[in-house]
């Protein structure tokens, strides 16, 4: 199903057919993001993503996809408008470190693992400052590596893994604190087709486990593997397509 109507219609779609009662995981209302120098990245954008939904944000380079993700992750603030995550207005939140540690998991295009520590330590590192003991962190990291099919490779350094494997480590790290939302910025951008397919399968599994997944991609074929694809052009959502 394709809906060519622009921003705002995604809310209708997300809240349609059986998902009406579900409180949204992410809501953006009339969001504008203008960078220094006057570049307009997001132009009065509205977006609603329901809980446990797998949404792909697609569009050409420079259309504002990553900016949108950064606003949801509280890595940046909108020039105007409201960003609500799990019902909390990010502009009113005092402890954004806590929010990034507990509410969202982040996966970047360049996977960004710390090169001098082991794969296991890379997963454990986001659990510092949580209730988990050292043993608990170790156990959780091992479980996650098993889940992303990297069991037994925890002692390796990131440089000893392939690009696809490193990206799976990054996904394991993003899930370490059991966030309700997983945000992925071009997670398959540097991967071959087979590795990209495995990452998408992994996202599907994560969604099935109850996590809301938002993935930014410029690859239309991969975007079609999500529950819904929202297409952005020049800072506005120009179409929203339900894939299943």
């Amino acid at each position: 199903m394709s809906d060519p109507s622009p921003a705002g219609s995604a809310s209708t779609l997300a809240s349609g057919e059986g998902a009406v009662e579900q409180p949204p995981a992410i809501e953006l209302h009339d969001v504008v993001k203008r960078y220094r120098g006057g570049v307009l990245a997001l132009d009065h954008l509205d977006l609603v993503i329901a809980k446990q939904e797998f949404v792909a944000i697609s569009g050409p380079s420079g259309c504002g996809k990553s900016t949108l993700l950064h606003l949801i992750a509280a890595l940046d603030a909108p020039t105007s408008g409201t960003v609500l995550v799990n019902g909390h207005d990010l502009a009113k939140m005092h402890d954004l470190s806590y929010f990034r540690r507990r509410e969202v998991g982040l996966v970047f295009q360049l996977h960004d693992l710390l090169p001098r520590i082991s794969v296991l330590a890379n997963v454990e590192i986001v659990m510092y400052g949580t209730h988990r003991s050292s043993r608990g962190r170790h156990q959780r990291a091992n479980e996650l590596l098993e889940e992303v099919d990297l069991g037994g490779r925890g002692s390796r350094l990131p440089t000893q893994l392939s690009g696809g494997e490193r990206q799976r480590v990054a996904i394991a790290r993003a899930l370490a604190n059991e966030p309700g939302i997983l945000l992925a910025d071009e997670p398959t951008g540097n991967l071959d087709a087979e590795s990209a397919r495995r990452i998408m399968e992994l996202f599907g599994r994560v969604r099935n486990d109850g996590v809301t997944v938002v993935m930014v991609t410029h690859d239309e074929a991969l975007a079609a593997m999500a529950d819904r694809t929202d297409r952005i052009e020049v800072g506005r959502i120009v179409s929203s397509t339900r894939n299943r």
Partner: peptide, 16 residues
């Protein structure tokens, strides 16, 4: 810088 930025991005506090 990049590593430290990553740690901040994944929720490390300034104090940590």
């Amino acid at each position: 810088t990049r590593e430290l930025g990553l740690l901040r991005a994944v929720g490390w506090t300034r104090r940590r």
